[in-house]
Simulated scan of single mutants.
Amino acid sequence: MSTVYDFAADTLGGDKVALDQYRGRVLLVVNTASKCGFTPQYQELEKLYREYQDRGLVVLGFPCNQFLQQEPGKAEDIAAFCERNFGVSFPLFAKIDVNGAHTHPLFAHLKKQARGVLGTQAVKWNFTKFLVKKDGSVYKRYAPRTSPDSLRVRGDIDKLLAE
């Protein structure tokens, strides 16, 4: 069976990154957007990253423009926006599709392993979050409305970091 470590993605800077480099870490993979009602979650994601990174958590942000064109900017615009407004220091990747014919292979895998409401695979909106165990297997999916800083998400991260 595949794990997230079998995939690669391009960074905002255009470098290809093998996700295998995160082996042994807990990952929170999120499709993001700069002009979404959930955009303030960038602040919560950064807070989690700073608080937990020394214990092994990595947040991975994947900008997506599929939901009402809420991520229209170019890579440099996205990077500047995230840094200026939220001090984002976690890894950000190139803009991708999370649904449809051009779905990034990582998100195809994540959606298959952790289905949404009523067993659906489709990502419904920006800031859908996938929590990945240290072995690269997908642990859980969280809806966009679920705060990254919620007790539920924090509890799951603590559990996986302790394993």
Score class of each variant (00 low, 15 high):
44 E>P: 03
47 K>R: 15
20 D>W: 00
45 L>T: 05
30 V>D: 01
27 L>H: 02
64 C>R: 04
43 Q>W: 00
54 D>S: 15
73 G>K: 06
60 L>A: 12
40 P>C: 13
56 G>N: 11
73 G>H: 08
27 L>G: 05
63 P>D: 04
46 E>N: 10
64 C>V: 03
58 V>S: 13
30 V>A: 03
43 Q>S: 15
61 G>N: 07
43 Q>H: 14
35 K>E: 15
67 F>K: 05
35 K>P: 03
44 E>N: 14
67 F>E: 04
17 V>E: 04
33 A>D: 09
27 L>T: 05
32 T>S: 10
38 F>R: 03
63 P>F: 07
53 Q>F: 02
22 Y>S: 02
43 Q>R: 15
18 A>L: 13
36 C>Y: 07
32 T>Q: 08
71 E>F: 12
63 P>G: 04
19 L>I: 05
73 G>C: 11
30 V>G: 05
24 G>D: 10
43 Q>M: 02
62 F>D: 06
41 Q>S: 07
31 N>R: 02
48 L>N: 10
34 S>K: 04
31 N>I: 00
61 G>Q: 09
22 Y>E: 03
71 E>T: 11
33 A>P: 11
42 Y>G: 03
64 C>E: 06
44 E>R: 12
22 Y>T: 02
53 Q>H: 15
44 E>F: 01
47 K>Y: 12
19 L>Y: 02
27 L>W: 05
59 V>D: 13
40 P>F: 12
71 E>G: 12
30 V>R: 01
23 R>V: 06
71 E>H: 12
70 Q>P: 09
73 G>P: 12
46 E>F: 09
72 P>G: 10
73 G>F: 10
46 E>A: 04
42 Y>M: 03
58 V>A: 13
30 V>H: 03
61 G>Y: 08
57 L>R: 01
67 F>Q: 03
17 V>C: 01
57 L>I: 11
51 E>P: 01
18 A>Y: 04
69 Q>S: 14
73 G>R: 04
39 T>I: 08
71 E>Q: 14
73 G>V: 07
59 V>T: 10
53 Q>L: 00
62 F>K: 04
72 P>W: 13
38 F>C: 05
43 Q>D: 15
47 K>G: 12
38 F>N: 06
31 N>T: 01
36 C>K: 09
59 V>A: 12
49 Y>R: 08
34 S>M: 07
18 A>K: 14
21 Q>A: 13
37 G>R: 06
34 S>D: 06
42 Y>E: 03
30 V>W: 03
71 E>R: 11
46 E>G: 01
72 P>T: 11
59 V>K: 11
37 G>V: 08
36 C>Q: 09
51 E>A: 14
